[in-house]
């Protein structure tokens, strides 16, 4: 803790460098495409639900649900968010 010093943005680490961000993004897109494509080639032998038969069900479900969580979740903050010392003030 001794050597912490405040110098915002002056020292972009490797993860903040544009090349890494680009590499990470494209890697992710490629992986997503591969995973989606693979869904068309391998099918489950005994699906329990019809949805499982749909090749990119999990991809779509995962994407939408994540979206939903974030979008819905941040509205929750308006309802329950309070100042940090909310409880201390009351004790």
């Amino acid at each position: 803790m001794a050597d912490q010093h405040k110098d915002h943005g002056s020292d972009p680490g490797w993860a903040d460098k544009p090349w890494f961000v680009r590499l990470f993004s494209w890697g992710l897109y490629l992986a997503c495409a591969l995973a989606a494509a693979a869904g068309f080639f391998w099918k489950k032998d005994h699906p329990h639900f019809e949805a499982e038969g749909f090749p990119v069900f999990f991809a779509i479900y995962g994407f939408i649900m994540f979206f939903l969580i974030v979008v819905v979740g941040q509205h929750l903050r308006k309802l329950v968010g309070r100042k940090e010392n909310y409880y201390e003030e009351r004790e």
Binding site: G39, V56, F58, I60, Y61, G62, F63, V70
Partner: peptide
């Protein structure tokens, strides 16, 4: 595949 699809697309989101 199912797990990769679910997780990767969530990360994509």
């Amino acid at each position: 595949i199912e797990q990769f699809q679910l997780l990767l697309f969530a990360v994509l989101a």
